[in-house]
Design a protein around this nucleic acid. Structure first.
Lengths: 151, 151
DNA sequence: CGGTTTGGTTCGAAAATCAAACCGTGCAAT
DNA sequence: ATTGCACGGTTTGATTTTCGAACCAAACCG
């Protein structure tokens, strides 16, 4: 497991943790593999079948995810802490997809204790759901502003 | 704007809104384009420069995003409601990336009212932050269980 | 021992991606 | 009227990546 964290200034375009995150998990199959492992499907053939990925692509992706410290392979594939920390990403994609990406009613329901689980993203400090108007953004990278490179 | 929502059963692998969502925004440049437009950078050349995407790829992606109803083009590119609804996805990627994908301290800080904004994903019903152990998942699709296709 | 499952790797064809050059339109100054 | 230039893409041709299918080795099962 090598540390693949990057200096954001080496990324193409704006230095940004979103871009850095997508370098690691922005591939077509990466998050689906994480989803399957989170379901307890930790065998290679299960992940192939349930994601629909080509075998060679999945083998390459699992190797990348392992090197990035998102997945570890002891007997079968398991999520590391970094991998489990992707759940909010997957939950928010699930909620968005339920609303905007599928025609059919949701095909999967999660339960939290005894009620249905639907994710909401809130401000960790005050607990409110932010609207874009409540948020102000500040770039801290020298040479970049919100509109682009200043040089 | 055509409706590109899909019947999840036509997807490769497990029918799932996460996979359906990734078909629309799982491309390498899509979420970065949405990020830039959310910053108010609504001109083609700005988005090219700030994402680092090749011009032809970005043109194709913006066309796809427009057809999917995530972006609209009046004078410049704007987010639709579906596009703004992607903010939780981008926020959770940002938080994950800050922690796991970059070496440097965060290069961007958002402020919510007068305090720093850090996203937290909670159960919309009870407000708690779920741990994976609190969650039980149920597949509703005939022919599929959590471990894979039943046939 | 033969047959099957598991976990990949290899192969060649097809498709996507890239950087760079190109193009047409509109506008502005000369 | 003409030149120059910025904007918003499109085209080009070389390179990479992806795909599905076939293949392979090791482990296990009877």
């Amino acid at each position: 497991m090598t540390d693949l964290r990057r200096d954001p200034s080496t990324l193409p375009g704006r230095p940004c943790s979103v871009a850095a995150a997508l370098e690691l998990v922005g591939d077509r199959w990466a998050l689906l593999a994480v989803r399957e492992i989170s379901f307890g499907n930790n065998r290679f053939n299960q992940i192939v079948r349930n994601t629909g990925a080509p075998r060679d692509r999945l083998a390459a992706r699992l190797k990348d995810l392992t090197e990035a410290g998102i997945v570890q392979k002891d007997d079968g594939y398991r999520l590391t802490e970094a991998g489990r920390d992707l759940f909010p990403v997957i939950w928010s994609l699930l909620a968005w997809g339920d609303r905007w990406a599928v025609t059919e009613p949701p095909v999967r329901v999660d339960h939290h204790h005894d009620h249905e689980f639907h994710p909401a993203t809130v401000c960790a400090t005050c607990g409110e759901r932010p609207t874009p108007a409540d948020l102000t953004r500040t770039m801290l990278t020298p040479g970049w502003t919100m509109t682009g490179p200043s040089t």
